[in-house]
C-alpha cells in the first residue's frame, strides 16, 4: 500500500511538472529570427519582423515542403510527406515548439530557444 502511494506521488509530480512546463512554454514570447534547417544543416535565417510575404520551397531527397511567410509569421503551407504533421502544426508561435517535418528532416524554429541553448 505504501509503495503505491509513493508511485502515485511520483506520477502526480511528473504530470504536474510536465503540465507546468507546457504552460510556461506555450506562454513564452515569440522571437523574430527564424532558422530553417534541413537534415541538421542551416538553410535560411529569416528576420520575420521585416520580411515580405512570400513562399519558400525547401527540397530534401526530392521531397518538397512549401513554407509561407505572411504577416510576419511562418508556417508550412504544403508538404508531400505522408503524415502532414508539419502542416497541422500551423503558424510558428512559440520558441519551445518548432515546426518539424520528420520524413523530410526539416526544422523551423526561433533562434536562441532554450532547448537549443542546452545543446551548445
Amino acid at each position: 500500500m505504501k509503495k503505491h502511494f509513493v508511485l502515485i506521488i511520483i506520477c502526480a509530480a511528473v504530470f504536474i511538472a510536465a503540465a507546468v512546463s507546457s504552460v510556461v512554454m506555450l506562454n513564452a514570447p515569440a522571437g523574430d529570427i527564424v532558422k530553417i534547417k534541413s537534415n541538421g544543416e542551416l538553410l535560411y535565417t529569416i528576420d520575420l519582423s521585416n520580411s515580405p510575404d512570400r513562399t519558400i520551397i525547401v527540397e530534401y531527397n526530392g521531397k518538397e515542403n512549401t513554407l509561407e511567410i505572411k504577416d510576419h509569421k511562418i508556417r508550412v503551407l504544403e508538404a508531400d510527406c505522408p503524415d502532414k504533421v508539419c502542416v497541422n502544426t500551423g503558424w510558428l508561435d512559440s520558441p519551445a515548439i518548432p515546426i518539424i517535418c520528420l520524413p523530410n528532416k526539416l526544422i523551423i524554429e526561433f533562434e536562441n530557444n532554450d532547448a537549443d541553448a542546452a545543446a551548445r
Binding site: F15, A18, S22, N39, G40, I97, P98, I100, I107
Partner: peptide, 19 residues
C-alpha cells in the same frame, strides 16, 4: 534522427497527454 535537441521541447506535451 534529427540530430538536434530542439525536439525536447515536445517532451512536456507528450508526457501530459501520455499520462
Amino acid at each position: 534522427v534529427m540530430q538536434t535537441f530542439a525536439v525536447i521541447g515536445y517532451l512536456p506535451f507528450l508526457i501530459v497527454t501520455g499520462c
